[in-house]
Design a protein around this nucleic acid. Structure first.
Lengths: 125, 125
DNA sequence: CACCGATATGTTTATCTTTGCATAACGGCA
DNA sequence: TGCCGTTATGCAAAGATAAACATATCGGTG
Protein backbone atom coordinates (compact mmCIF):
# COMPACT_ATOMS: atom_id res chain seq x y z
CA UNK A 1 0.00 0.00 0.00
CA UNK A 2 1.28 3.42 -0.94
CA UNK A 3 1.28 6.49 1.22
CA UNK A 4 -1.36 8.11 -0.93
CA UNK A 5 -5.02 7.43 -0.55
CA UNK A 6 -7.43 8.36 2.16
CA UNK A 7 -5.02 10.82 3.73
CA UNK A 8 -6.43 14.29 3.41
CA UNK A 9 -10.02 13.63 2.51
CA UNK A 10 -12.36 16.58 2.44
CA UNK A 11 -15.07 14.65 4.19
CA UNK A 12 -17.85 17.13 4.16
CA UNK A 13 -21.18 17.53 2.38
CA UNK A 14 -22.51 20.47 0.50
CA UNK A 15 -26.11 21.32 1.30
CA UNK A 16 -28.38 23.95 -0.09
CA UNK A 17 -31.78 25.34 0.46
CA UNK A 18 -33.82 27.53 -1.82
CA UNK A 19 -36.92 29.59 -1.47
CA UNK A 20 -38.93 32.25 -3.18
CA UNK A 21 -39.62 35.59 -1.61
CA UNK A 22 -41.17 38.89 -2.45
CA UNK A 23 -38.82 41.76 -3.09
CA UNK A 24 -39.49 43.10 0.37
CA UNK A 25 -38.39 39.73 1.65
CA UNK A 26 -41.38 39.38 3.93
CA UNK A 27 -43.48 36.53 2.64
CA UNK A 28 -41.73 33.41 1.46
CA UNK A 29 -42.42 30.16 -0.30
CA UNK A 30 -40.15 27.68 1.32
CA UNK A 31 -39.40 24.02 1.00
CA UNK A 32 -42.22 23.18 3.36
CA UNK A 33 -44.76 24.88 1.13
CA UNK A 34 -43.67 22.71 -1.79
CA UNK A 35 -43.88 19.67 0.42
CA UNK A 36 -47.33 20.68 1.51
CA UNK A 37 -48.52 21.26 -2.03
CA UNK A 38 -47.28 17.84 -3.00
CA UNK A 39 -49.00 16.37 0.01
CA UNK A 40 -52.26 18.09 -0.80
CA UNK A 41 -52.12 16.82 -4.34
CA UNK A 42 -51.52 13.28 -3.09
CA UNK A 43 -53.76 13.16 -0.05
CA UNK A 44 -56.45 15.69 -0.76
CA UNK A 45 -56.26 17.50 2.56
CA UNK A 46 -54.06 20.02 4.26
CA UNK A 47 -54.30 18.14 7.51
CA UNK A 48 -52.95 14.96 5.99
CA UNK A 49 -50.28 16.90 4.13
CA UNK A 50 -49.13 18.56 7.34
CA UNK A 51 -48.93 15.23 9.11
CA UNK A 52 -46.99 13.70 6.25
CA UNK A 53 -44.62 16.65 6.34
CA UNK A 54 -44.19 16.27 10.07
CA UNK A 55 -45.28 19.77 10.94
CA UNK A 56 -48.24 21.11 12.88
CA UNK A 57 -51.44 21.88 11.07
CA UNK A 58 -51.26 25.39 12.47
CA UNK A 59 -47.94 26.07 10.83
CA UNK A 60 -48.90 24.36 7.60
CA UNK A 61 -52.00 26.47 7.30
CA UNK A 62 -50.13 29.66 8.16
CA UNK A 63 -47.28 29.04 5.74
CA UNK A 64 -49.62 28.21 2.92
CA UNK A 65 -51.73 31.27 3.57
CA UNK A 66 -48.73 33.54 3.54
CA UNK A 67 -47.43 31.98 0.35
CA UNK A 68 -50.74 32.62 -1.34
CA UNK A 69 -50.91 36.15 -0.09
CA UNK A 70 -47.41 36.77 -1.35
CA UNK A 71 -48.18 35.45 -4.80
CA UNK A 72 -51.47 37.27 -4.92
CA UNK A 73 -53.42 34.25 -6.03
CA UNK A 74 -54.58 30.96 -4.55
CA UNK A 75 -52.59 27.77 -4.64
CA UNK A 76 -55.31 25.67 -3.09
CA UNK A 77 -59.05 25.45 -3.15
CA UNK A 78 -60.33 24.44 0.23
CA UNK A 79 -63.76 23.47 1.46
CA UNK A 80 -65.10 22.84 4.94
CA UNK A 81 -67.76 20.37 5.86
CA UNK A 82 -69.05 17.87 3.37
CA UNK A 83 -68.69 14.17 3.09
CA UNK A 84 -65.26 13.80 4.56
CA UNK A 85 -65.40 16.90 6.71
CA UNK A 86 -63.68 18.98 4.10
CA UNK A 87 -60.84 18.77 1.64
CA UNK A 88 -58.26 20.75 -0.27
CA UNK A 89 -56.94 20.55 -3.78
CA UNK A 90 -54.45 22.36 -5.93
CA UNK A 91 -55.32 25.16 -8.29
CA UNK A 92 -53.93 25.01 -11.83
CA UNK A 93 -51.45 27.70 -10.80
CA UNK A 94 -50.17 25.50 -8.02
CA UNK A 95 -49.77 22.57 -10.38
CA UNK A 96 -47.78 24.72 -12.72
CA UNK A 97 -45.65 25.96 -9.88
CA UNK A 98 -44.92 22.44 -8.68
CA UNK A 99 -43.85 21.42 -12.15
CA UNK A 100 -41.63 24.43 -12.61
CA UNK A 101 -40.12 23.96 -9.20
CA UNK A 102 -39.32 20.32 -9.80
CA UNK A 103 -37.41 21.27 -12.92
CA UNK A 104 -35.64 24.01 -11.02
CA UNK A 105 -34.61 21.69 -8.27
CA UNK A 106 -33.31 19.09 -10.63
CA UNK A 107 -31.23 21.66 -12.44
CA UNK A 108 -29.81 23.03 -9.23
CA UNK A 109 -29.16 19.62 -7.79
CA UNK A 110 -26.97 18.97 -10.77
CA UNK A 111 -25.21 22.30 -10.49
CA UNK A 112 -24.56 21.77 -6.80
CA UNK A 113 -23.28 18.28 -7.32
CA UNK A 114 -20.91 19.53 -9.98
CA UNK A 115 -19.76 22.46 -7.88
CA UNK A 116 -19.24 20.17 -4.94
CA UNK A 117 -16.96 17.89 -6.88
CA UNK A 118 -14.90 20.85 -7.95
CA UNK A 119 -14.71 22.16 -4.42
CA UNK A 120 -13.64 18.79 -3.20
CA UNK A 121 -10.95 18.50 -5.81
CA UNK A 122 -9.59 21.89 -4.88
CA UNK A 123 -9.63 21.11 -1.20
CA UNK A 124 -8.18 17.64 -1.40
CA UNK A 125 -5.24 19.10 -3.21
CA UNK B 1 -50.73 50.77 -25.53
CA UNK B 2 -51.54 47.12 -26.07
CA UNK B 3 -53.20 44.78 -23.61
CA UNK B 4 -50.03 42.81 -23.14
CA UNK B 5 -47.30 43.86 -20.77
CA UNK B 6 -47.13 43.83 -17.04
CA UNK B 7 -50.18 41.65 -16.62
CA UNK B 8 -49.25 38.31 -15.12
CA UNK B 9 -45.78 39.00 -13.84
CA UNK B 10 -44.20 36.36 -11.60
CA UNK B 11 -42.89 38.96 -9.23
CA UNK B 12 -40.87 36.85 -6.91
CA UNK B 13 -37.22 36.29 -6.16
CA UNK B 14 -35.29 33.09 -5.91
CA UNK B 15 -32.97 32.87 -2.94
CA UNK B 16 -30.59 30.19 -1.88
CA UNK B 17 -28.32 29.35 0.95
CA UNK B 18 -25.56 26.81 1.08
CA UNK B 19 -23.49 25.23 3.76
CA UNK B 20 -21.14 22.39 4.43
CA UNK B 21 -21.85 19.75 7.00
CA UNK B 22 -20.45 16.53 8.28
CA UNK B 23 -22.34 13.37 7.47
CA UNK B 24 -23.51 13.16 11.05
CA UNK B 25 -24.98 16.60 10.50
CA UNK B 26 -23.63 17.97 13.76
CA UNK B 27 -21.18 20.66 12.76
CA UNK B 28 -21.77 22.99 9.87
CA UNK B 29 -19.87 25.62 7.96
CA UNK B 30 -22.39 28.25 7.08
CA UNK B 31 -22.40 31.56 5.33
CA UNK B 32 -21.45 33.34 8.54
CA UNK B 33 -18.27 31.32 8.87
CA UNK B 34 -17.18 32.42 5.42
CA UNK B 35 -18.03 35.98 6.31
CA UNK B 36 -16.01 35.67 9.47
CA UNK B 37 -13.02 34.21 7.70
CA UNK B 38 -13.11 37.06 5.23
CA UNK B 39 -13.36 39.51 8.09
CA UNK B 40 -10.46 37.94 9.92
CA UNK B 41 -8.34 38.12 6.81
CA UNK B 42 -9.20 41.78 6.38
CA UNK B 43 -9.20 43.00 9.96
CA UNK B 44 -6.88 40.63 11.77
CA UNK B 45 -9.17 39.86 14.66
CA UNK B 46 -12.21 37.74 15.33
CA UNK B 47 -13.75 40.48 17.40
CA UNK B 48 -13.60 42.95 14.54
CA UNK B 49 -14.82 40.31 12.09
CA UNK B 50 -17.82 39.55 14.29
CA UNK B 51 -18.69 43.21 14.55
CA UNK B 52 -18.38 43.67 10.80
CA UNK B 53 -20.63 40.66 10.31
CA UNK B 54 -23.16 42.07 12.72
CA UNK B 55 -23.17 39.09 15.05
CA UNK B 56 -22.09 38.66 18.64
CA UNK B 57 -18.54 37.69 19.43
CA UNK B 58 -19.92 34.77 21.39
CA UNK B 59 -21.63 33.31 18.37
CA UNK B 60 -18.76 34.08 16.04
CA UNK B 61 -16.33 32.29 18.27
CA UNK B 62 -18.66 29.32 18.72
CA UNK B 63 -19.44 28.94 15.04
CA UNK B 64 -15.81 29.13 14.08
CA UNK B 65 -14.82 26.62 16.71
CA UNK B 66 -17.43 24.16 15.58
CA UNK B 67 -16.41 24.59 11.96
CA UNK B 68 -12.82 23.79 12.84
CA UNK B 69 -13.78 20.83 14.94
CA UNK B 70 -15.89 19.50 12.10
CA UNK B 71 -13.10 19.82 9.58
CA UNK B 72 -10.58 18.39 11.96
CA UNK B 73 -8.08 21.15 11.40
CA UNK B 74 -7.69 24.82 12.23
CA UNK B 75 -8.89 27.63 10.04
CA UNK B 76 -7.41 30.35 12.21
CA UNK B 77 -4.37 30.90 14.29
CA UNK B 78 -5.24 32.97 17.30
CA UNK B 79 -3.12 34.56 19.96
CA UNK B 80 -4.06 36.29 23.19
CA UNK B 81 -2.21 39.17 24.73
CA UNK B 82 0.54 40.99 22.93
CA UNK B 83 0.81 44.36 21.37
CA UNK B 84 -2.80 44.84 20.39
CA UNK B 85 -4.25 42.53 23.01
CA UNK B 86 -4.26 39.63 20.63
CA UNK B 87 -5.08 38.83 17.03
CA UNK B 88 -6.24 36.15 14.63
CA UNK B 89 -5.18 35.17 11.16
CA UNK B 90 -6.09 32.60 8.60
CA UNK B 91 -4.29 29.32 8.15
CA UNK B 92 -3.29 28.27 4.64
CA UNK B 93 -6.16 25.77 4.72
CA UNK B 94 -8.61 28.57 5.40
CA UNK B 95 -7.25 30.61 2.55
CA UNK B 96 -7.67 27.70 0.25
CA UNK B 97 -11.19 27.15 1.48
CA UNK B 98 -12.10 30.77 0.91
CA UNK B 99 -10.81 30.62 -2.61
CA UNK B 100 -12.62 27.40 -3.39
CA UNK B 101 -15.78 28.72 -1.85
CA UNK B 102 -15.70 31.92 -3.87
CA UNK B 103 -15.51 29.88 -7.05
CA UNK B 104 -18.29 27.68 -5.84
CA UNK B 105 -20.51 30.59 -5.06
CA UNK B 106 -19.93 32.24 -8.37
CA UNK B 107 -20.79 29.06 -10.19
CA UNK B 108 -23.94 28.56 -8.20
CA UNK B 109 -24.99 32.16 -8.49
CA UNK B 110 -24.91 31.70 -12.22
CA UNK B 111 -26.80 28.45 -12.08
CA UNK B 112 -29.45 29.94 -9.82
CA UNK B 113 -29.84 32.99 -12.01
CA UNK B 114 -30.29 30.79 -15.03
CA UNK B 115 -32.73 28.50 -13.28
CA UNK B 116 -34.67 31.48 -12.04
CA UNK B 117 -35.13 32.86 -15.52
CA UNK B 118 -36.42 29.53 -16.65
CA UNK B 119 -38.79 29.29 -13.73
CA UNK B 120 -40.06 32.75 -14.45
CA UNK B 121 -40.62 32.00 -18.09
CA UNK B 122 -42.59 28.89 -17.19
CA UNK B 123 -44.68 30.73 -14.65
CA UNK B 124 -45.39 33.81 -16.71
CA UNK B 125 -46.76 31.59 -19.40
C1' DC C 1 -80.79 17.42 13.63
C1' DA C 2 -76.79 15.65 15.99
C1' DC C 3 -72.25 13.93 14.55
C1' DC C 4 -67.90 13.72 12.09
C1' DG C 5 -63.82 15.33 10.28
C1' DA C 6 -61.53 19.13 7.98
C1' DT C 7 -60.78 24.05 7.54
C1' DA C 8 -59.86 28.44 10.14
C1' DT C 9 -57.70 31.14 13.62
C1' DG C 10 -56.48 33.11 18.29
C1' DT C 11 -53.78 32.07 22.43
C1' DT C 12 -50.48 29.81 25.25
C1' DT C 13 -46.39 26.81 25.77
C1' DA C 14 -42.33 24.81 24.55
C1' DT C 15 -38.06 24.67 21.93
C1' DC C 16 -34.18 26.56 19.61
C1' DT C 17 -31.09 30.32 18.55
C1' DT C 18 -28.66 34.36 19.60
C1' DT C 19 -27.32 37.82 22.55
C1' DG C 20 -25.51 39.67 26.73
C1' DC C 21 -22.97 39.44 30.88
C1' DA C 22 -19.35 37.83 33.76
C1' DT C 23 -14.88 36.28 34.35
C1' DA C 24 -10.34 34.40 33.32
C1' DA C 25 -6.01 34.05 30.77
C1' DC C 26 -2.59 36.11 28.04
C1' DG C 27 1.42 39.08 26.76
C1' DG C 28 3.35 43.40 25.11
C1' DC C 29 3.95 48.12 26.91
C1' DA C 30 4.23 52.28 29.71
C1' DT D 1 3.85 45.36 37.68
C1' DG D 2 -0.49 47.25 36.52
C1' DC D 3 -3.16 48.33 32.24
C1' DC D 4 -5.26 47.31 27.70
C1' DG D 5 -7.53 44.84 24.27
C1' DT D 6 -8.30 40.28 22.57
C1' DT D 7 -9.12 35.45 22.90
C1' DA D 8 -11.78 31.91 25.59
C1' DT D 9 -15.78 30.06 27.81
C1' DG D 10 -19.74 29.29 31.05
C1' DC D 11 -24.31 30.82 32.05
C1' DA D 12 -28.51 33.51 32.20
C1' DA D 13 -31.62 36.51 29.45
C1' DA D 14 -33.97 37.68 25.39
C1' DG D 15 -35.94 36.73 20.79
C1' DA D 16 -37.57 33.97 17.25
C1' DT D 17 -40.01 29.83 15.67
C1' DA D 18 -42.89 26.05 16.02
C1' DA D 19 -45.95 23.12 18.56
C1' DA D 20 -50.04 22.48 21.38
C1' DC D 21 -54.32 23.64 22.79
C1' DA D 22 -58.82 25.63 22.40
C1' DT D 23 -62.73 26.87 19.79
C1' DA D 24 -65.65 28.01 15.95
C1' DT D 25 -67.51 27.08 11.41
C1' DC D 26 -69.06 24.29 7.77
C1' DG D 27 -71.86 20.69 5.18
C1' DG D 28 -72.74 15.93 4.02
C1' DT D 29 -74.60 11.69 6.32
C1' DG D 30 -76.92 8.44 9.45
Amino acid sequence: MGKRGKSNRFNVFLNYKLWLSSMSGDGIISEVVYTLLNGIRDKGSLKAAAEAAGISYRKAWGDLKQAESMLGYDLTEKTRGGKKGGHSELTPAAKKLLEAYAALQEKLDDAVEEAYLELKKKMEN
